[in-house]
Amino acid sequence: MLVTNLEIVPGKRIQKHYGLVQGSSVRAKHVGRDIMAGLKNVFGGELKGYTELLQESRQEATDRMIEQARAVGANAVLNVRFSTSSVTAGAAELFAYGTAVILE
């Protein structure tokens, strides 16, 4: 599965469009990470726990999107975008979407 955020792939023609595919993942942080974040809010600096958490859930969202693309029979997802929104306090939704196509 080719995943790209370009609208075209150089040297390859789009044979068929399947439309939008998407994947999302809502994650909450656990208490331990929250305490660490509280400390970091005093000292400043990177919140490694959060960085990893968001990376993992974004990967999961991407995987779900790819799964959906595979289910409709596509072999590539073009023009992929990511978006983040906080649903409630302490939980965030990571969302990935793109256009499923068949490339020759």
Binding site: T4, G11, V42, F43, E46
Partner: peptide, 17 residues
């Protein structure tokens, strides 16, 4: 290109007190 791939990088960073 021989190959293309989506690459990402993220960071969460906090301001101090």
């Amino acid at each position: 290109p021989r190959e293309t791939n989506l690459v990402t990088g993220n960071v969460v960073i906090s301001v101090d007190y």
